[in-house]
Nucleic acid binder design. Structure first.
Lengths: 345, 345
DNA sequence: AAATGTAGGTAAAACGTTTTATCTGAAAAA
DNA sequence: TTTTTCAGATAAAACGTTTTACCTACATTT
């Protein structure tokens, strides 16, 4: 049983394909009688336009390509549903790919998407893909970067305000009386990691605390979990004066949690902690870890809006196409209430 | 700068589109000289076939639709990469959708995929979608169910061997000397949940233990986490004799973990536990929770093979298209070593 | 009565491929 | 020499739409 086409409808209603197409798309002029008749039979026969034929003719695939670092990751999980919903409102579908934080794979995915004639791209940038993305820009393909960006390149992006997110956390720690705050980060060459680090050092300076290099630990991205846990342990042991520790990503925070738990450190009694980027695990067990949460739905919505604007589907009320969205401080119990040591005590 | 088409290549090489197509697809007869020339210019110009035009002409979209319960879920995360890899080997792409365990949404997604002319479907079944899936079957569309199936309907599927997975866990507990084993499950109307429950009762019977209804707790699927945690707590408190507890899914296990931790129960000293379906959290903290792990990559690979076979892309060496894959018992430390109370002690 | 306008409708081209059927010219067979 | 064969190449149709340009018949204006 073949699928029913516009020609079939035309034959059944004794009209031409043109008229059917006009009626179905609300173009041209057609008498009320014919309009009704065509609409009725189309409905009765369950006519669905062949999207492929439409795409070929119109040059629009109505597909958006999303390239993300890792489809298993929590960022993707949080972001995908919102993207899908927004896209659907405007008749777009999404094709997902993962770059595995790997230049070759990322490039391959971009080619694949181009090949499949997607109308626009949402990409979480990997270092090394700058040129490929710029090629899209110069060929006028709509692109939005998400979760990171390429500094110096004029490409629309939307991400969390990393600097001020970290600042909120550090402020919170300092307010609570902590003074020797450690920072654990990772050696990924991504702008957001740099901004997080500078959020840390600048906020300390703002509070007249001199950043101490020994209190910063930079782990290798491709370390195993065990290696990370061990490195964090010896970092903590080496810095006896450290009374709080800030993790720059959630997987670092999780490794840290495990490390502290191995060493039988109590949080927050022995050491306070905050992690950037919330995760189910942080809310799960006593005492509950305070985090800087990314507003993922908002990020997704903003990214899709930016893209739809470029696609001409949506009026923009935005002046800029470079968006930073504030992060949320989620207070749990890994930071102790101020028990400030009074100077005259 | 328009994309280059087969006509362009024809013009450049002084041949016809037919010849170019033949050369590029290895069909027809073409002299070596022309072949080389065409291949060379195609490469030089970076020719990529317009997949949409190909699809329209051949009737093959080279796209596989995947409908999963929830794109944020861990099952999806684990399975997606493997599916993608396998699909790519045969030139297929994947479009992902989530049904949100919701009949209306699931149906909508299936329509959307049909509309987009996908060549085949991989679906994690939701109750209520039986008819829609059967409609696909009768219209000869390739379909594979994953992670569950519809009992009584002749639709290919691949999932973990739930019954024997549970059996392994119960055996393990009994071997270690536990006798009053509780079971926490959820009221989802899915065959795999029934099989897990019967795995529990049958294995107990096999060991001459009479299943006790009071030791089975069935939670509502749409409960909040808090409600689950509370229900589990009172369940544990009500059954003082219970020395081990088996959770039928990972989110139940996580709730249980939190519940036990709230009540200051020590695992495995106060109570032993096992959860079906592994999760990062279970490996993370002392003591480490023993789980029944689903071999997700294998499941994904098997499902894709089944589908590719139906698509005629792959020779099958399989007799059946209904596959159950053994689960793995991952021993951690939530089950204490046998300290069997000797009858004569 | 002739010219003009207009509502309602359609033929045909186009999108970029694949594939069938056919055409050409030269070599081989008669 | 004429016929057959066959390798090598291509014209044209088809996939299912959208859209341009045009046609018809009737009403209105001059």
């Amino acid at each position: 049983m073949k699928k029913i086409s516009i020609k079939d409808i035309a034959r059944m209603t004794g009209t031409s394909p043109t008229t059917v197409s006009f009626v179905l798309n609300g173009k041209g002029r057609t008498s009320d009688a014919l309009t009704k008749k065509i609409l009725a039979t189309a409905k009765k026969e369950g006519y669905q336009p062949n999207q492929i034929a439409v795409s070929l003719r119109t040059g629009q695939s109505k597909v958006i390509g999303l390239i993300v670092e890792n489809m298993g990751g929590s960022f993707f999980g949080a972001v995908s549903k919102e993207l899908e919903n927004e896209a659907k409102k405007y008749g777009y579908r999404i094709v997902y790919c993962s770059s595995e934080n790997n230049v070759r794979k990322g490039r391959e995915m971009m080619e694949m998407l181009a090949h499949q004639q997607v109308d626009g791209y949402i990409i979480t940038p990997t270092a090394g893909l700058e040129k490929d993305v710029m090629k899209l820009m110069t060929s006028k393909k709509p692109v939005v970067l998400m979760d990171s960006y390429y500094p110096g390149l004029d490409i629309p992006y939307v991400l969390v305000d990393n600097f001020n997110g970290i600042k909120q956390g550090i402020d919170h720690l300092i307010e609570a009386g902590y003074e020797n705050i450690g920072f654990v980060t990772v050696d990924l060459d991504l702008i957001q990691m740099k901004e997080r680090l500078s959020g840390y050092t600048e906020t300390l300076k703002f509070h007249k605390i001199k950043p101490d290099k020994k209190l910063v630990l930079t782990l290798k991205y491709d370390s195993t979990k065990e290696e990370m846990v061990n490195e964090i342990s010896s970092f903590v042991r080496k810095n006896k004066n450290m009374d709080a520790i800030f993790f720059a990503t959630n997987y670092l925070g999780i490794a840290g949690l495990q490390s502290l738990s191995n060493m039988k450190y109590k949080v927050p009694e022995d050491i306070a902690m905050i992690s950037f980027d919330d995760h189910e695990i942080f809310s799960l067990f006593a005492p509950g870890i305070t985090t800087i949460q990314q507003p993922t739905e908002e990020i997704a919505r903003a990214a899709m809006n930016l893209l739809l604007t470029q696609l001409g589907k949506k009026e923009s009320n935005l002046i800029t196409n470079k968006i930073q969205i504030p992060a949320n401080l989620v207070r749990r119990n890994s930071v102790k209430k101020a028990k400030r040591v009074m100077p005259n005590a």
